[in-house]
Simulated assay, not measured.
Amino acid sequence: MRVLLQAHFDTDKANEIISSGTMPKLMQEIVGAFKPEATYFTAAGGVRTMFLVFDMQDSAQMPPLTEPLFEKLGAEVDYSPVMNTEDLQKGLSQLQAG
């Protein structure tokens, strides 16, 4: 299932990691574990935020993927199932005309 992950980083923890110079390596490790089809970084709600779109094969992936975000970045994390245009068209084709 295609999933959108939103991770809002704790400012103090992120500042420490940036100051230590380890943020690039940490982001490479975290993003690499997800194998995302798309990754975006921005500020949302006043904090550093990462958006990832990836294919979740099994909900059992959530703990190993998410724990580094909680532990290292003090992140608040949300998962949402999402569709691309192809998925939407496939879903709409399954609706019966009312």
Rank of each mutant, 00 (worst) to 15 (best):
60 A>L: 11
48 R>Y: 04
33 A>H: 00
2 R>Q: 01
77 V>K: 04
49 T>Y: 06
2 R>S: 01
97 A>N: 15
49 T>P: 01
57 Q>I: 07
17 I>V: 12
59 S>D: 13
42 T>N: 11
5 L>N: 00
46 G>E: 12
3 V>C: 08
78 D>F: 14
32 G>A: 13
7 A>R: 09
86 E>S: 09
22 T>S: 04
94 Q>C: 05
89 Q>F: 08
96 Q>F: 01
76 E>H: 08
3 V>A: 09
82 V>K: 06
7 A>L: 03
11 T>K: 15
48 R>A: 07
27 M>Y: 11
7 A>Y: 08
90 K>M: 15
29 E>M: 00
96 Q>H: 10
90 K>T: 12
75 A>H: 05
17 I>Y: 01
93 S>W: 07
42 T>L: 10
64 P>M: 12
13 K>T: 08
88 L>P: 00
90 K>E: 13
46 G>W: 06
81 P>E: 02
28 Q>K: 14
28 Q>G: 03
8 H>W: 08
32 G>P: 03
11 T>P: 14
11 T>Y: 05
91 G>V: 01
84 N>T: 07
43 A>T: 12
21 G>M: 11
93 S>Y: 05
69 L>I: 11
22 T>E: 08
81 P>G: 01
35 K>W: 03
42 T>G: 05
77 V>F: 08
32 G>H: 08
73 L>R: 00
12 D>M: 06
74 G>N: 05
40 Y>W: 15
82 V>I: 09
55 D>L: 07
